[in-house]
Design a protein around this nucleic acid. Structure first.
Length: 665
RNA sequence: UGGCCUAUGGUGUAACUGGUAACACGUUUGUUUUUGGUACAAAAGAGUAUAGGUUCGAGACCUAUUGGGCCAACCA
């Protein structure tokens, strides 16, 4: 399509470069390598979208590889769930493979390394080894077993495999460099003894390879050309390459690891461990609870694969940390559902409406369009009668001119039906409205500002509607070092509503998606059946009326501001300099006061470099002048540099600068 | 007292080998509308972390700072 001018992300640029440097397009191959220790979540969709997206773009194969090297945490249940989720997203993998498929090859290569003197058996406790490892700022030291003979290493390793040792007694380490600046290169562990049953290899092995030893070699075995992962693996790249160096055949494809920034979504957590905690502690009903950011949760909530793929694409790929607003996800799902979801009517919070001039026993089946965005969706019939439900929110006895809904003496259109006028209300003893009395008019051609949805009471079907709010009340629940993420759990994330829906919904099936007109998008929950209809609210409609109404819950924590206040005073002052000379008078006064306050925490050494600021950058020179004034006031002696700076400013053509200079000269 | 990564509107991503910043979301306004939805139109919002330098010209190149992130599991 319009690919020609499309700008490439940095990974695509790397691939294009490799292609122009002689890599054959046929050799392009990718992989998505989840560990089967939990369910996939929205964060994974980025990694999936990148690798599988590349596969689609270049028409190259993509393997689905389960990185199952730790039998203590991995289960078949997760393998099945992951396959289901990836397939549901609409991606097709070339091969389904497992790291455990390569256990024998990995073992053989390990022996090769031992023979080359590049690996040895260490027999210390993990504490002793950790101590020798040093810290990021301190080099490590060699351990006592580092120079064991090849023969002894071979013998010990064979006996490890044979199950002669208990967990923790011996491990196999690569022999690299205990003083390396990269801690991962300080003789990393390749194999440990683990007497656990593996979900695929059962008890065939009692030694298991570590991630670093496994990953690059697996990529190489599969001849993956580009191995894409998230940024936290950047430090592993050196080791990835080192392990590859030991076994690589130059005539074959040598995989390249490249890293991108992972996806962060506001108000949600992405850690599998923490997600598991929500499940285990019963905060949610399971991995597929519609409030969960898991793919299965989103699916149950009513999200479409299209919407999620669109979202991932829109988010883009780069290397800087990001925090994506949930509103973008919501936009993507609305956009998709708007095109495909049939429109129906449902009342969630009912109040009775009586049409006094409509015959008691009359029922009309009125024509209703199924989807204005899609004429081929056709139409259906809905029943209209004397007694209806409308939303409580859609009626007010007295209201201003901005209220387009029903008020006493006012007129409104009932969607797909007639125009009505409210004449009277009936209230109970405590003043609640129990009935609104109206008259209707069959002249529907008139133009009327408001249109309401409704259901006929006699025909309405009862249904349970589950409305969800965000699971956490904080924008970044798991990034507070002193506060546990569980304290931000929103106690009101689920609201169960007894609603009334139009009769055509009686036959709806699990998974069906609808737009409840004027309310939002809903789908039929997995728990639903014909006798007990249950809907999930996927997402509300965009609601400009809600913005007009006064709100209380929208004060977002201003992250940027918080960060800014932690910056050194001089940095904050500098950022004022950029715009100072362009500010409105009032703003400028405020800024000036702020600068004077900040300047109290600034030393002369901080300020001095700014004296050299280019002439054209008047703003910076002004804020420097103001800060200098504060310093002089608190006892700083004038020196030659200061005098020169002031003298030069006095001759400047910027009036503000001259003014500030005069003030302190 | 280390290494690596990173810094562009409120958010996310762009900007071909240097030519003063684009797209999407969000925000605001208007038009259309039997959904306060959708669609359409428009507006506001960034001197590209800071300072210095190279250059006729720097978001891009150089230098020095300053934020932020990652790295010490027999996890992946």
């Amino acid at each position: 399509m319009s690919e020609a001018k499309r700008s490439l992300n940095f990974i695509e640029q790397i691939i294009e470069e490799d292609l122009t440097n002689g890599l054959s397009k046929d050799n392009l191959r990718f992989r998505f390598p989840p560990e089967p220790n939990g369910y996939l979540h929205i964060g994974h969709t980025k990694a999936i979208g990148i690798s599988f997206g590349l596969g689609e773009y270049y028409n190259a194969p993509v393997n689905l590889r389960f990185d199952d090297t730790n039998p203590a945490k991995e289960e078949q249940e997760y393998v099945d769930a992951i396959k289901k989720d990836v397939a549901w997203l609409g991606y097709k993998w070339e091969k389904e493979v497992f790291s455990s498929d390569y256990f024998q090859q990995l073992y053989d290569w390990a022996i090769l390394l031992i023979n080359k003197g590049k690996a040895y058996i260490d027999s210390q406790t993990s504490e002793a080894m950790a101590e020798q490892k040093g810290t990021p700022t301190q080099p490590g030291v060699d351990g006592p077993y580092r120079n064991r003979s090849v023969k002894e290493n071979l013998d010990l390793f064979a006996r490890m495999k044979a199950g002669e040792f208990n967990e923790g007694e011996h491990i196999l380490r690569a022999k690299i460099d205990m003083k390396h600046v990269n801690m991962l290169m300080r003789d990393p562990i390749m194999y440990r003894v683990l007497k656990k049953e593996h979900h695929r290899t059962a008890n065939d092995w009692c030694i298991y390879p570590m991630y670093d030893w496994t990953h690059g070699e697996s990529d190489y075995i599969e001849q993956i050309s580009h191995s894409l992962c998230s940024l936290e693996f950047k430090p592993h790249r050196a080791l990835y390459d080192w392990f590859l160096d030991q076994v690589v055949d130059p005539s074959k494809i040598r995989p390249k690891q490249r890293e991108f920034a992972r996806l962060n979504l506001s108000y949600t957590i992405m850690s599998k461990r923490k997600l598991l905690k929500l499940v285990n502690e019963g905060i949610v009903k399971g991995w597929d609870d519609p409030r969960m950011p898991t793919i299965s949760g989103l699916r149950r909530r009513g999200y479409t694969p299209n919407a999620i793929r669109k979202f991932v694409h829109t988010v883009g790929v780069a290397k800087r940390d990001n925090m994506i607003d949930v509103s973008l996800l919501e936009f993507c799902i609305r956009e998709d559902l708007n095109k495909i979801a049939p429109r129906v009517m449902a009342v969630l919070n009912p109040v009775k409406l009586l049409i006094t001039n409509y015959p008691d026993d009359k029922v009309e089946w009125l024509e209703a369009e199924n989807n204005p965005e899609d004429v081929s969706a056709g139409s259906r019939k809905i029943p209209f009668s004397r007694e209806l439900y409308i939303e409580k929110d859609d009626f007010k006895e007295i209201a201003g001119s901005k209220f387009f809904r029903l008020k006493l003496g006012g007129e409104v259109r009932l969607k797909n039906a007639y125009i009505i006028k409210a004449n009277n209300v009936v209230k109970d003893s405590s003043g609640n409205i129990t009935e609104i009395q109206c008259t209707y008019s069959e002249d529907t051609a008139r133009s009327i500002k408001g249109t309401l949805h409704w259901v006929s009471i006699a025909h309405a079907v009862k249904a349970e509607v589950r409305e969800y709010d965000r699971l956490f009340t904080d924008e970044t629940p798991d990034s507070h070092q002193d506060i546990d993420f569980m304290t931000f759990v929103n106690p009101n994330s689920l609201k169960t509503i007894n609603a009334f829906v139009e009769p055509s919904l009686k036959e709806s099936q699990v998974g069906d998606r609808f737009q409840f007109q004027r309310l939002g998008y809903f789908n039929v929950d997995d728990d639903s059946n014909t006798n007990n209809l249950i809907f999930n609210k996927t997402v509300g409609l965009r609601d400009t009326w809600a913005k007009i109404k006064p709100q209380q819950n929208t004060n977002k924590p201003q992250k940027k501001q918080v960060q800014q206040s932690k910056r050194p005073a001089i940095e904050q002052i500098k950022s004022y300099g950029k715009k100072y000379d362009r500010m409105q008078d009032e703003q400028r006064e405020k800024a000036k006061a702020e600068i004077k306050e900040l300047a109290k925490n600034v030393s002369y050494e901080d300020l001095e470099p700014l004296f050299g600021t280019a002439v054209k950058k008047a703003g910076t020179r002004i804020i420097t002048m103001i800060s200098l004034g504060v310093l002089l006031n608190s006892g700083l002696e004038k020196n030659e540099d200061i005098s020169n700076f002031i003298a030069k400013a006095l001759e400047d053509k910027n009036a503000l600068l001259v003014e500030e200079a005069k003030a302190i000269s």
